[in-house]
């Protein structure tokens, strides 16, 4: 028996919106410690790593480990049927063919059940080693989303250069070029508005806009985003999900031939 309940479906709705552009299907691995998803986009350029800890759920029970292949499009449609304040419960038997989503209104007067067929999937897992990054930047997630959107108008790629002075985003294309510099904030009274840079060595990396613009769909999950970068390795873009877990996106850089 697997059962996981969240008091408000809003978190799960936001998580689905944050992955649906990148993934068509994914395996949800459920164990005593929680729910984990690791899945690459079809082009194998980016990877989504989602972790929801069991202690972050209002109720969590997982009698034996389950790997459930889910169609992300269908799951997104089902979650859109829930109101943000509805309680959501995920339920499956031990060797499931289906998973059931149960939405209950706050006043308990409406109860909706949606059953979704599971799919058989080959589990592809990337071994990602613990990495010390040359630059780790924390910045407001809305600012990052804004910069990705604005610079995407100028080119297909954004170059991120990080030094002690700050972080610079730039894009160049046929119509011109653009760059946005953010300095490290002097006083971080408001934690959510802070730009913090932890730099060992300066880095300069180039990434495809279309993936960055998919990652920023996670913006409603967290006020801050963490970008971890080292030369010639994938970017890690991380959003905390309240007290329950995190979503990390990995993105392979574009490298000069």
């Amino acid at each position: 028996m697997f059962e996981a309940r969240l008091a408000q479906s809003a978190i799960l709705k936001k998580v689905l919106e944050a992955v649906k552009d990148l993934l068509t299907e994914a395996t949800f691995e459920c164990s005593d410690s929680g729910i984990q998803v690791q899945a690459m986009d079809n082009a194998h350029v980016s990877l989504v790593s989602l972790n929801l800890r069991s202690d972050g759920f209002d109720k969590y029970r997982c009698d034996r480990n389950l790997s459930m292949g889910m169609n992300i499009g269908t799951m997104t449609k089902i979650l859109r049927c829930a109101s943000s304040e509805d309680t959501v419960t995920l339920r499956a038997v031990d060797s499931p063919d289906n998973i059931i989503f149960i939405f209950e209104s706050q006043n308990k007067e409406k109860l909706a059940e949606y059953e979704m067929k599971l799919i058989n999937m080959d589990l592809e897992h990337l071994g990602i080693p613990e990495t010390m990054y040359s630059c780790v930047v924390k910045m407001p997630s809305q600012e990052f989303a804004r910069i990705c959107r604005d610079l995407s108008q100028f080119g297909e790629a954004i170059t991120i250069a990080c030094s002690k002075e700050g972080i610079k985003f730039s894009a160049a294309g046929d119509y011109g070029n653009a760059n946005v510099k953010l300095a490290q904030t002097a006083d971080s009274d408001k934690e959510e508005e802070a730009v913090l840079i932890d730099m060992q060595e300066p880095v300069k990396l180039t990434f495809a806009c279309r993936y960055l613009n998919s990652f920023v769909k996670a913006t409603p999950l967290c006020a801050q985003v963490k970008l971890s970068m080292s030369s010639d390795v994938p970017l890690v873009c991380e959003y905390q999900i309240g007290e329950i877990g995190h979503i990390r996106y990995y993105l392979a850089p574009k490298i000069d031939d």
Binding site: L47, L126, P253, I255, D257
Partner: peptide, 14 residues
């Protein structure tokens, strides 16, 4: 122009 790399060039597929 820079070339888009594949993630599997950086991490092993298990």
């Amino acid at each position: 122009t820079p070339v888009q790399n594949d993630l599997t060039e950086f991490y092993n597929l298990a």
